[in-house]
C-alpha cells in the first residue's frame, strides 16, 4: 500500500497543495464575511429537506463563534500538517468520506439535531486516517497508545454528551467526531484492502 510518502523537501509544498490550509482559509473567510453560523450555510435539517443541499457541504465550513472557529482551524491546521504528507492524495477522499458519514449520521441517526456547523467531523476523519497510516508504516506502539487516547476521549465525550473542555456558542456534538473518524478509517481500510488484492 502506498500512502504517498514523499521526500521531505517536498513536504512543505505538499502541505500547501493539500486540503487543510484551504479549508482553514475558507472557514476564516466565511466567518468574517458572512458572520457566525450564517443561516443560509449551516446544516439545517428542514432547509436540506426542502432542497437546499449545499448545506451538506457548507455546514462544515461555518462556525458558531470565534472560539469555535479558532479551535477548529487550529486543529485542522495541525492535523493537516501532521498527516497531509502521509495521506497525500488520499486526503481529499478521506475528507469526502468524513463529510458523507457525518452528514449521514446527522440525517439518519440524529434526527433531533436541527442544525449543525463546524469542521471537527472532518478533522477527526483526517486524524483517524492519519493515525492508521502512521501505524501501518511504523508499527510503533506509541501510535497505538495515541490512537487509544483519542478513542477514549471520543468515547468519554459520547458518554457525557459534550466535548471535553470545549465552550462554543453551539454546544459540541461528539457524535460528529466519532462519525468523522469512522469515515476517515473506512476510506483507508478500503484502500488498504484494494492494495492488498493488487
Amino acid at each position: 500500500m502506498n500512502f504517498g510518502v514523499i521526500a521531505s523537501n517536498q513536504s512543505r509544498s505538499r502541505f500547501w497543495t493539500g486540503p487543510a490550509p484551504w479549508l482553514v482559509l475558507i472557514a476564516i473567510l466565511l466567518f468574517f464575511l458572512a458572520g457566525p453560523a450564517q443561516p443560509e450555510l449551516v446544516y439545517d435539517r428542514m432547509a436540506i429537506a426542502n432542497g437546499e443541499i449545499w448545506r451538506l457541504i457548507t455546514g462544515h465550513l461555518v462556525h458558531s463563534d470565534f472560539a469555535h472557529l479558532l479551535w477548529d482551524c487550529a486543529g485542522l491546521w495541525l492535523v493537516g500538517w501532521l498527516f497531509d504528507e502521509l495521506l497525500s492524495s488520499m486526503s481529499w477522499r478521506v475528507l469526502g468520506a468524513g463529510l458523507l458519514i457525518v452528514d449521514a449520521t446527522l440525517w439518519w441517526l440524529l434526527p433531533d439535531i436541527q442544525a449543525y456547523c463546524g469542521l471537527s467531523g472532518l478533522i477527526n476523519a483526517l486524524l483517524g486516517a492519519g493515525l492508521y497510516c502512521t501505524w501501518r508504516q511504523s508499527h510503533d506502539p506509541w501510535v497505538v497508545f495515541i490512537a487509544s487516547l483519542v478513542t477514549l476521549k471520543i468515547g468519554i465525550e459520547w458518554y457525557i454528551g459534550a466535548a471535553l473542555f470545549t465552550q462554543t456558542a453551539w454546544s459540541s456534538l461528539p457524535q460528529s467526531h466519532a462519525a468523522g473518524m469512522i469515515g476517515g478509517l473506512l476510506v483507508i481500510l478500503i484502500s488498504s484492502l484494494q492494495s492488498s488484492r493488487e
Binding site: G75, V102, Q114, Y116, W142, L164, W170, S171, S172, L173
Partner: peptide, 27 residues
C-alpha cells in the same frame, strides 16, 4: 427536539494534537 450542534474541538484536543506531533514527528 430541534436542537443544534457544533462540530467543535477545543483546547484539550489541541493539547492532544501537540502531544501527538511530538511523538509522531520522529516517526
Amino acid at each position: 427536539g430541534g436542537s443544534k450542534g457544533g462540530g467543535a474541538i477545543g483546547p484539550f484536543d489541541i493539547v492532544l494534537l501537540v502531544l501527538l506531533a511530538t511523538i509522531l514527528l520522529p516517526l
